[in-house]
C-alpha cells in the first residue's frame, strides 16, 4: 500500500524552526509506522532522526505523536490508521533535540525524585518475603510500564503545570506503595500529597488512553488519593472535596456544586476568589436553590455508601503483618 507520512522535523544545527516534511513510501500491509519510518531513513532520507530499538513494544524507545496523540511507532499498524496522510510529531511536553528525538532528561529526573527503589522496613529475610500471589500479580500491571513517555507527552496537567510530577513517576510511585514489601508508603504518600503530587492530576484519561501497555497511570493516581485519605491525610482541598462529595450524595442523593465548592476550598481567601464567579452566576439566575432538592431514594443511597465502605479491602504490608504478629 502507498503511505504518506507528514513528519514534523527540527534540526537545531541548521535552523531552530520546526518544519513539515512529506514522505511517500510503498509498504506491505503488515507494516508498522516504525517499519515505514525506518524504510524512509534507510532508503529515502538518512537525516531523519528517531529513537527505536525492540520493534515489539517492550523497550519504549519509539514514542512519538501519531495523528495528534502519543503512541509507539512499533505498535501502530499502518493498516489500522487513516492512510491519507499520517502526521508524525515528536512527543509533547518535552523539548525537541532533533526531529522525533525529544529531551528525556526532565522525564528521568522526575522519576529519580520519587526514590524509585524498594524501601523495606528491616533487613530482608533469609528466604523470600512471603506475600500473597495476588499482591505480586497486581504489580504486573505497573511493572508493565516501559517508560516510553507517551503518558507524559499527552498529560493535560503537565501542559500548564511544569512542577506536576506526571503520570509515569506517579505510576512508579504506586508500584512501591502497593508493594507489600515497601515500608515507606506513608512517607511516599505524604510527599505526593503536596504541590506537584496526586492532586495536580486533572483526571482527563489521556494517560490511560495513550499508554501502550495498559498501565493506566491515572487509575494508580486515584488509588493513591484513596490510600492517602484512608491514612487520614484529609487536610487538603482534594480530600475535602471527596469527603464533601460523599456526604452530599449521602444526604441528598445528588450533587450540589455550590456546596461542594464551599466545603472543598480552604479558608476565606480562596472562597472569596470564587465569589465573583458566584455573583455572575447569581445574576444569570443560575445558582442552585438554598435547600437542595433531595432525590426519592436518598436514604438508600446513604446506606449503600456506608455498607460499601465496610467492604473495602485492606492493603497487605509485610512490616505491618510482622508488627501485628509480634503484638499478638
Amino acid at each position: 500500500m502507498d503511505i504518506k507520512l507528514k513528519v514534523r522535523r527540527q534540526n537545531p544545527e541548521a535552523d531552530d524552526k520546526p518544519f513539515w516534511k512529506d514522505y511517500a513510501v510503498e509498504v506491505p500491509e503488515y507494516y508498522t509506522l516504525l517499519d515505514a519510518l525506518l524504510k524512509v531513513r534507510e532508503e529515502v532520507d538518512e537525516t531523519l532522526a528517531l529513537r527505536c530499538s525492540c520493534r515489539s513494544h517492550i523497550c519504549g524507545s519509539c514514542g512519538m505523536r501519531v495523528n495528534g496523540h502519543a503512541a509507539l511507532a512499533c505498535k501502530t499498524k499502518l493498516s489500522d490508521i487513516d492512510q491519507g496522510a499520517v502526521t508524525v510529531e515528536p512527543m509533547g511536553n518535552m523539548p525537541v533535540i532533533r526531529d522525533l528525538v525529544v529531551d528525556l532528561e526532565p522525564f528521568w529526573n522526575k522519576l529519580y525524585s520519587i526514590k524509585p527503589y524498594l524501601q523495606p522496613a528491616t533487613d530482608p529475610p533469609e528466604r523470600e518475603y512471603v506475600v500473597p500471589n495476588d499482591t505480586m500479580f497486581h504489580l504486573d500491571g505497573v511493572v508493565n510500564c516501559i517508560m516510553c513517555g507517551a503518558c507524559v507527552s499527552d498529560c493535560e496537567s503537565l501542559s500548564v503545570n511544569p512542577i506536576f510530577i506526571g503520570p509515569t513517576a506517579l505510576a512508579k510511585e504506586y508500584r512501591f506503595v502497593a508493594d507489600p514489601r515497601d515500608a515507606a508508603d506513608r512517607e511516599r504518600l505524604t510527599q505526593m500529597n503536596g504541590p506537584g503530587g496526586v492532586w495536580d492530576c486533572t483526571h482527563c484519561f489521556q494517560c490511560v488512553e495513550v499508554c501502550p501497555k495498559d498501565v493506566a497511570p491515572m487509575e494508580r493516581i486515584m488509588a493513591m488519593r484513596r490510600m492517602m485519605m484512608d491514612m487520614g491525610m484529609e487536610q487538603n482541598n482534594g480530600a475535602k472535596r471527596a469527603n464533601a462529595f460523599m456526604d452530599l450524595v449521602g444526604s441528598y442523593g445528588r450533587l450540589d456544586e455550590t456546596r461542594l465548592l464551599m466545603r472543598s476550598v480552604s479558608g476565606l481567601g480562596e472562597l472569596m476568589s470564587f465569589s465573583k464567579v458566584g455573583l455572575r452566576a447569581l445574576w444569570k439566575g443560575k445558582l442552585p436553590p438554598l435547600r437542595p432538592h433531595r432525590i426519592a431514594g436518598a436514604p438508600a443511597v446513604r446506606r449503600i455508601l456506608e455498607r460499601a465502605r465496610n467492604q473495602r479491602p485492606r492493603r497487605f504490608k509485610v512490616h505491618q503483618a510482622q508488627e501485628e504478629g509480634v503484638r499478638a
Binding site: P124, E128, N133, D179
Partner: peptide, 20 residues
C-alpha cells in the same frame, strides 16, 4: 534470585505466598 526478590522483583508466588 533471592537478592532480586529482596530488591523488589514481583516474582509470581504459589498459593502459600512462597516463590512459584
Amino acid at each position: 534470585v533471592l537478592e532480586l526478590e529482596h530488591w523488589g522483583v514481583n516474582f509470581s508466588r504459589d498459593e502459600t505466598g512462597h516463590l512459584g
